[in-house]
Design a protein around this nucleic acid. Structure first.
Length: 151
DNA sequence: GCCAACGTTGGC
DNA sequence: GCCAACGTTGGC
């Protein structure tokens, strides 16, 4: 069992959107490091901290879990998609995604500022300046610490 | 809107 | 393989 933090802009896809759909493909990731985590390291049932980024109140908004492991991201083949990649082919896909399932929406977002104030979370990439990677592994200790911050 | 901190691209 | 230019992310 692994633990992850996945960022999403709530204007594009929020924890409420996931709650409404129950399950959703995590498409549109176009960064090799993040892709590799999805393709090589994510296992069925892994737990995800759902992080809201680029918004008024950035922070962890809830929990999800992996409900389907790596498969090609169909948006790379779709010319009408913002995520279209002309270098990707059906025979040799470049981008992969997982499917995530809703677990929980927190009553209140655990804000980035709150996370920054916890000494045990100082290694979390998201609290560091200039951290842009949208998918990050989280240690079990960190995950458990974060759950204690729920209201 | 600003800007620091990256990641990617492409000429050489 | 180097590196300048460019594009993107994301907090503020």
């Amino acid at each position: 069992m692994n633990f992850w933090l996945m960022k999403s802009e709530p204007d594009v896809f929020s924890i409420k959107n996931l709650k409404a759909k129950n399950k959703s493909g995590w498409d549109g990731v176009r960064n090799y490091q993040a892709r590799n985590f999805m393709r090589d390291n994510m296992k069925l049932g892994d737990l995800i901290l759902f992080y809201h980024s680029s918004c008024d109140n950035p922070g962890i908004a809830g929990l999800a879990k992996i409900s389907r492991t790596s498969h090609p991201d169909p948006t790379q083949f779709d010319k009408k998609s913002n995520y279209y990649d002309p270098k990707a082919t059906l025979d040799n896909p470049r981008w992969f995604m997982v499917e995530v399932e809703f677990v929980e929406e927190f009553d209140q977002i655990i804000s980035l500022q709150t996370l920054k104030n916890i000494k045990e979370l100082s290694d979390l990439p998201v609290v560091k300046k200039g951290s842009r990677l949208s998918i990050n592994p989280v240690k079990e200790k960190e995950y458990n610490k974060i759950l204690t911050l729920k209201y």
